[in-house]
Design a binder for these strands. Structure first.
Length: 642
RNA sequence: GGCCCCGUAGCUCAGCAUGGACAGAGCGGCGGCCUUCUAAGCCGUAGGUCGUGGGUUCAAAUCCCACCGGGGCCGCCA
């Protein structure tokens, strides 16, 4: 017995079984239609309009013949075609408190929770610049999913895919190559390494763009195409202003980069070469780029640590998809197994995912969008694309781990490539892998009125977000705690605020970032939950042990509501875990907190009369257990005082 | 143009998959509450043609169709 609500439903089922016998009609299926009743009518209700129309007043039958046989159902009433059910609250309270007390931190687990083996891949930010708030949404979603499934008893591995073969890497590498000394100096001075490399990347990219555009402009001018040339000139000006911005941020580093990069006659071509050399395993290029990446990842870890996020594995794309022959294998197996869907197009190799899905009608089986574009696997110069390596990466998982579900937290803008990926796996003969792969999609995070651009350095970094949140909290707690304690509390509250705000909006809604919303310290926020938790501690810290309690004869309305809500917790957890919907838990703890705070203001606990006091202490302890338990799942830090 | 997601109170969002009784929170507004377990709180109040129009149903914010508005994707980028 681990779900109080489920015990109640068992009685509802029994009621329906007995009713079926009485009226000679099987109505047991109605147990699946339980809804919440308006509070004046009871706790739960069954819409039974047609039955009531046909059989008239079944209420009296239930009251006279059935209720005496049920333990948890107190009374029923028929109103407007609804069978309203009220709970024997004393009996139910006993069950709720007993289950919560005996299960403690484990309360919430039930048979309905999914178990099995999961792999979750999330965050996977490109190692070129600091993570921004978009990565924050990804990271918090992924980490909370992992925590939720682990809580349920599933075995979960969490992976970070290090995109070290991406197009951004050669810029990072070349920039680092020319400015290494300055970079190392900055890092030793205590600047976050990902921030330093971020400047290196952006400036290098900007310089390369300027060189590329200049060449085009010259050519267009020579051809007399001045309109087109002018367009490119204003584009070039944008990149110049990007560089000017970094001049203000770090003059020395930017100048070193400009000087060093100036030496390279054809930087855009060099970028292509480095890219190729990296993929082919050129030792020197590998060494330089990997050094820079390691710096970035060091910075990532600091940020992720602050948010309470950790990984079991960091998978380098070059290792899991290229060096192990993955790309080669993808091209080979796909060409062999799905020959008629692989074709050459101007020297590039293309997988006709569009035709394949049409012919095999896989939309339902793989949950695909109706439109699938063609997928290019190899460029005409023979190098692989992200998608190709992504297919190889999926195969690497398949070869090395056992899992029932592979959940990848990736933005919704990648819906098409992710669909192509599953189709390619299917076509290669890995149908089961294709079915187990879940694209856990989330919509973008936008800056109000502005578009984020990593390349142009226009974004709010996760570090900025954490620091700003912390300093706002600091203003409040400085006077209450010693400096060290204040720092700890401020950090924890900042993390709670940020995680909550990312989790409180459904992933399929675009999230418009606003400081006011994320840094909200009031109701419907992380700090509000933390504060409520602290209040339970404030009471419980003053008692030496949780006393045995009798259920008082008159239970206050708020107490009744609390008991009912606490009893529903395992249902919420099971539903959230089955559907991978973390918002359900957020919604639940916010409601529970509102309810508890209302109760807290109205009823004394420690000073209550004997008998009632013990009961209330138990109730507060139950709230604390459930709240704390949910906070763990969502990664909202728990505090004793704040 | 095709595909995916979204449209609910001034603002931010729950609720929609599995249709049910007067559509819920928070922020912001207005008015109150700190000699009593932390006021990051609580109480009260105002605020809604659930984008629009049809359809299905005893019953539609929820399901179906059409349309309108916003975002994303349709690259030899990731």
């Amino acid at each position: 017995m681990n779900s109080p609500y489920d015990e109640l439903i068992k009685d509802v089922r029994k009621l329906l079984e007995l009713l079926s016998a009485e009226i000679n009609k099987d109505v047991t299926a109605y147990v699946n239609n339980v809804i919440r009743a308006p509070s004046q009518y009871g706790y739960i209700a069954l819409p039974m309009h047609s039955i009531i129309r046909e059989y008239g007043d079944i209420g009296n039958i239930i009251k006279d013949k059935i209720l005496p046989k049920l333990k948890l159902i107190d009374n029923v009433s028929l109103i407007n075609g609804y069978l309203n059910i009220s709970v024997n609250i004393a009996e139910y309270t006993n069950i709720v408190l007993r289950i919560i007390n005996s299960l403690g931190e484990k309360y919430g687990i039930s048979e309905k929770c999914p178990v099995g083996n999961y792999i979750i891949e999330h965050t996977s930010a490109n190692p070129a610049k600091p993570m921004h708030i978009g990565h924050g949404r990804n990271a918090v979603l992924g980490d909370s999913l992992a925590r939720l499934l682990r809580f349920c008893g599933a075995s979960v591995r969490v992976h970070f895919y290090v995109n070290d073969c991406g197009d951004q890497m050669p810029y990072v590498g070349i920039g680092y190559y020319v400015a290494k000394d300055t970079v190392v100096k900055r890092v030793n001075e205590g600047v976050k390494p990902d921030e330093v490399i971020g400047i290196v990347y952006s400036v290098t990219y900007a310089v390369s763009e300027i060189k590329r555009l200049s060449k085009q402009i010259e050519q267009l001018s020579n051809e007399g195409k001045y309109d087109e040339a002018n367009k490119l000139i204003s584009e070039r000006d944008e990149w110049v202003s990007v560089i000017n911005n970094f001049m203000e941020k770090d003059k020395e580093l930017t100048e070193v980069l400009l000087k060093g990069l100036g030496r390279f006659e054809d930087l855009p071509l060099m970028v292509k070469q480095w890219s190729r050399n990296y993929e082919e395993g050129d030792e020197y290029v590998r060494k330089v780029i990997r050094e820079a990446i390691d710096l970035v990842l060091r910075g990532f870890r600091v940020t992720l640590d602050r948010l309470g996020i950790s990984f079991d594995s960091w998978d380098f794309e070059s290792e899991v998809a290229v060096d192990n022959g993955g790309v080669f294998r993808v091209i080979n197996e796909l060409s062999r197994k799905a020959q008629q869907y692989v074709e050459r197009d101007n020297g590039a190799l293309v997988f006709r995912a569009d035709k394949y899905v049409q012919d095999l009608k896989l939309w339902d089986e793989l949950k695909l969008p109706k439109y699938i574009p063609k997928a290019t696997l190899l460029r005409s110069d023979g190098t692989s694309l992200y998608l190709t390596r992504d297919i190889a990466y999926a195969l690497w998982y398949w070869d090395n781990f056992k899992f029932d579900k592979l959940i990848r937290v990736i933005g919704s803008e990648q819906a098409h490539p992710q669909a192509q990926l599953r189709l390619a796996l299917y076509a290669m003969g890995y149908q089961e892998l294709a079915r187990r792969l879940i694209h856990y999609s989330y919509e973008m995070v936008n800056l109000a009125g502005m578009k984020m651009s990593g390349r142009k350095g226009v974004y709010v970094s996760l570090d900025d977000l954490l620091n700003e949140a912390k300093s706002r909290v600091m203003d409040i707690v400085r006077s209450r705690f010693s400096p060290e304690e204040a720092d700890k509390v401020a950090e924890a509250v900042a993390v709670g605020a940020i995680r909550y705000s990312f989790l409180s909006v459904s992933p399929n809604k675009p999230l418009t970032f606003s400081w006011d919303k994320v840094l909200n310290l009031r109701q419907n926020s992380g700090p509000f939950i933390q504060y409520t938790y602290v209040r339970t501690n404030g009471i419980l810290d003053k008692v030496t042990e949780i006393p045995k309690a009798q259920i008082p004869s008159n239970i206050a309305n708020e107490e009744r509501e609390l008991i009912l809500m606490l009893g529903e917790y395992p249902e919420i957890i099971a539903k959230a875990a089955q559907e991978l919907r973390l918002e359900y838990i957020i919604d639940y703890i916010n409601k529970l907190s509102l309810l508890f705070n209302s109760y807290y203001e109205k009823y004394p606990v420690l000073n209550a009369e004997p008998g009632v006091r013990e009961f209330r202490i138990n109730l507060v302890n139950a709230v604390k257990t459930v709240l704390g338990n949910a906070m763990n799942i969502l990664g909202i830090p728990r505090l004793r005082r704040m």
